[in-house]
């Protein structure tokens, strides 16, 4: 069990999302940065879809009521135990009674905490993701609060073996981490203005030539009116050449739509199932984690990518994750 001593700004339980119910208006929800979530799970021996904690900008204080294996991936919100920095992107063994606290948001914006076995919450429509607006899924359909006690599912054999292995090495430390970590190519955070690859949208041609140009040339800024549903951007105002009425249709994670005020919105994890604004572009799936790690005030640039190239990148990323899985299982066999 883990206990929430302080909840942080917005800490929710999420998995890879709730699929199959969008036709009933039920949004997908799920993690904003699926890459960090998946890797955090793999590092503790979980399935990729196991529920993790999504921690946003100001992190919580969490107490572990039993020895466990954790991994923190994604944004660096300065996690520490007993005043000692807990390294990211690797398995970390934590002793019973330890308090994990988060501090300054140093890089990125969202951290994912995976625990061996995963958080044990009921599945609603097949998913553990918190759907805040409808108040369902996750932990009681809401963000975590002080005093919440989260149960953990039993770890699988591999995790149990890892926990046992670590517990013989820990001595009187509160936690111990591996020396190795995941390769930096998996880290969706950069210190430059990220260039996000975008496929032209269905209504791209309806925008004025000038707007088309500035969309792929000028940087945009993430405004404070940004959340899990979508990021509102500020920059060049984009205008249409005709004002024909759009008919609502499905949207996707990473759809960039432009409402009448001309400021684009990037739709994210908690997007509605359908939308009626013209779509100027669609973020390539591989670059969504980079967007998820941006916070208000950060800048972003869009570069054009073909639909074919986006699919090729998608498959390449999946192969890299398969390779990571194989590398991890070899590593664990070697260490035990």
């Amino acid at each position: 069990m883990v206990k929430i001593i302080k909840p942080g700004l917005l800490t929710t339980i999420q998995d890879l999302g709730r699929y199959g119910f969008q036709k009933f208006g039920v949004i997908v929800s799920g993690v904003m940065d699926s890459l960090s979530h998946r890797i955090a799970n793999l590092l503790v021996g979980n399935e990729e879809n196991a529920p993790t904690l999504e921690i946003t900008m100001v992190g919580p204080v969490i107490e572990f009521e039993r020895d466990t294996l954790i991994s923190i991936c994604g944004g660096d919100l300065s996690p520490s135990i007993d005043g000692k920095f807990v390294p990211l992107w690797r398995p970390v063994f934590v002793k019973k009674g330890s308090q994990l606290r988060f501090g300054q948001c140093k890089a990125g914006c969202r951290s994912y905490l995976a625990v061996a076995g995963g958080f044990d919450v009921p599945r609603v429509m097949g998913s553990a993701s918190t759907y805040l607006r409808a108040g369902i899924g996750g932990f009681k359909g809401r963000p975590l609060k002080t005093g919440d006690e989260l149960k953990l599912s039993p770890p699988n054999n591999r995790s149990v073996q890892m926990i046992h292995d670590f517990s013989t090495k820990i001595g009187d430390q509160k936690f111990v981490a591996t020396k190795w970590s995941v390769s930096t190519e998996f880290i969706p955070i950069s210190n430059k203005i990220p260039s996000i690859r975008v496929i032209k949208g269905r209504q791209y041609q309806l925008f004025s030539k000038e707007s088309q140009k500035s969309f792929f040339r000028e940087p945009f800024e993430i405004t404070t009116q940004s959340d899990r549903m979508g990021y509102r951007l500020k920059g060049s105002v984009l205008s249409l050449t005709s004002t024909e009425e759009m008919i609502s249709e499905a949207v996707n994670f990473g759809t960039i739509q432009v409402p009448p005020d001309g400021n684009p919105i990037v739709l994210l994890a908690d997007r509605q199932t359908t939308g009626g604004y013209p779509k100027i572009g669609q973020v390539a799936t591989v670059d969504l984690p980079y967007i998820a790690q941006l916070k208000p005030g950060d800048k972003i640039k869009f570069v054009e990518v073909s639909h074919e190239e986006a699919q090729r990148l998608y498959l390449e990323r999946e192969r890299e994750i398969q390779q990571l899985k194989r590398a991890l299982s070899i590593k664990w066999k070697g260490e035990m």
């Binding site: 496929i199 269905r202 249709e249 499905a250 949207v251 996707n252 994670f253 990473g254 759809t255 779509k279 669609q282 973020v283 390539a284 799936t285 639909h307 986006a310 699919q311 990148l313 998608y314």
Partner: peptide, 9 residues
């Protein structure tokens, strides 16, 4: 019409 790299309208 494609809607990104994993959906078609």
């Amino acid at each position: 019409h494609s809607l990104g790299d994993n959906a078609v309208i």
